[in-house]
Amino acid sequence: MIRFKEALYRWIFTVMAFTSLFFLLGIIIVLLREGLPILMAVGPFKFLSGVHWYPTYDPAEFGIFPLIIASLSVAIGAMVVAVPLGVGSALYLHELAGERIRHILKPAVEILSAVPSIVFGFFGMMIVAPFVQKIFHVPTGLNAFTAAVVMGIMAIPTIASLTEDALGFVPRSFKEASYALGASRWQTLIKIVLPAAGSGVSTAIILGMSRIVGETMTVLMVSGGAAVIPHSIFDPVRPMTSTIAAEMGEAVTGSLHYSALFAIGLVLFLMTLTLNIISENISKKYRIKLGLDR
């Protein structure tokens, strides 16, 4: 009986552990099967580099280059906002904050990550967009700039908490050695602690970026939705995720448009996968460099 139970538990947990892999494979298969028709019809190169996204015209055109540009510009813009604020908060929390401030600030950063993305979108639409429109005198506040700002704020917690972890991994002995040579706190932080945590910090940034590239609801609400190559950061854009979300309902099942949306999903998946693999590699090297692997 006991042996049967052992075997049963073993079996149950094995199945549980393999579900992730199972679903991952399922998703990849679905993306490939549904996305392939458009890639065959248009050709992968033309699909990626085409500058016209007119899925419902006759004849329809399926070029996702504007969508890729939109995703990248929003992601890079968001990084410009999130990296200084995220890394800055982490440095402050790690090195300068007293216990009392830390107890207030750290949960605040974490709660920021608990805000649902739709609430961020709402906030962007109602507060940030009108503000941007007024300040910069642009026709609409729903544009790449606003999207970048809102997404940047969303990415702060990811970057701040991962960076703080990375700073925490830097052995205390490095700091002591630096202080003992007569370095100031600032010199120690900038020249010893931050470089030693450097790969951890880049991992944090890449994961933050990966989160932004994959984020849907917020960009859908604040990016404006124009599927053309933007001329300035104040033009409305249509990132890949919001294209899928906005058009999936209207695309006829089995049509080329439907297939194109799956293909966009595939491209998106490959992008975030690449970012995650890069960050995984960097953090592995970093653990070896600090001798944490031995």
Binding site: P171, S173, F174, E176, A177, S178, A180, L181, I192, P195, A196, K289, L290
Partner: peptide, 13 residues
């Protein structure tokens, strides 16, 4: 007043 520590602690440089 310089110091040498118990565990060798060169910087990762």
């Amino acid at each position: 007043v310089g110091m040498v520590f118990q565990k060798p602690n060169p910087f990762p440089k």
